[in-house]
């Protein structure tokens, strides 16, 4: 299905997408700033949301890892996901150390 997927064409479209998304984000951020949208409740909501999403991602990585192990065995994808798992966990540990000092 993806036989004729042109990676270089994809990568040339990428900067354009990034630029447009960046401009949209910048203007919505400026509008939000005016409305004082980024207050402590906002921080709280988004902190908790990321916290929940972190848990979901943890499960997703484990499931993806299991699929790779069953389908492909120890190939590149296996090590990529193992590396991702390590990053996910180590960054949590570092985050906990930082947050523990701050609070």
């Amino acid at each position: 299905m993806y036989e004729e997927f042109d990676i270089w064409a994809f990568l040339s479209g990428l900067p354009l997408g990034l630029a447009i998304a960046g401009i949209i984000l910048y203007f919505s951020w400026r509008k939000g700033k005016k409305e004082r949208r980024y207050d402590e409740r906002y921080t709280n909501v988004h902190r908790q949301a990321k916290s929940i999403s972190w848990g979901t991602t943890t499960v997703a990585i484990l499931v993806a890892w299991a699929i790779v192990m069953i389908v492909e065995g120890s190939q590149l994808a296996f090590f990529v996901l193992a590396g991702l798992w390590v990053v996910h966990m180590v960054s949590y540990g570092i985050g906990a150390a930082i947050a523990s000092k701050q609070n």
């Binding site: 972190w54 991702l84 949590y92 985050g95 947050a99 523990s100």
Partner: peptide, 26 residues
């Protein structure tokens, strides 16, 4: 609070690493 903050930091790092790995795999 501490662990919610920690997961927030970790979430941010994983988002970036995951996006880079995705591009790398592609």
């Amino acid at each position: 609070t501490v662990h919610a903050k920690a997961r927030t930091i970790s979430w941010g790092i994983t988002v970036i690493v995951l996006a880079l790995m995705w591009l790398g795999a592609l």
